[in-house]
Amino acid sequence: MPTTVSMTVNGKKVSGSIEPRTLLVQFIRETLGLTGTHVGCDTSQCGSCVVHVDGKSVKSCTILAAQAEGSDVLTIEGVAKDGKLHPMQEAFRENHGLQCGFCTPGMVMSALDLVKNNKNPSEQQIRDWLEGNICRCTGYHNIVKAIAAGAKAMA
């Protein structure tokens, strides 16, 4: 039985008719066509799918779209404003914090949540925070640098 969900995504009111079991990530990718949010695993470990729900980072593969009913969702597509990269995105670019780009949206969304709660994270705090985000390309070195630089730029 399809059901209707409504939420705000990247500042726009959206709704869609979906199967109740639809995951938030499926709703974002398939119903809304926002394919910047990625799926890298089926065990909720890789973090490629991280978005913000009501201001908090969430693995969008772990919750149902229906659970986000009425929520305010931010995906990677909503981070840059007026055609200008967000300072955190800019820091990833400056510090070569991405290679294939597949983990990148999740990394950026996680990083933004970290900085929201910790304006000046240490290297170790960044590394610990990224426990739930796997990157196979960069060896994390430049991601850690990028997040530290991004936090500074946001201050």
């Binding site: 926002l34 394919t35 910047g36 949010t37 995906t75 990677i76 597509e77 981070v79 840059a80 990269l85 995105q89 990833f92 670019r93 991405l98 294939c100 780009g101 597949f102 990148t104 949206p105 950026v108």
Partner: peptide, 9 residues
């Protein structure tokens, strides 16, 4: 990078 960072890959 710009396209990957904005979800446009």
């Amino acid at each position: 990078d710009a396209r990957f960072l904005t979800g446009n890959g």
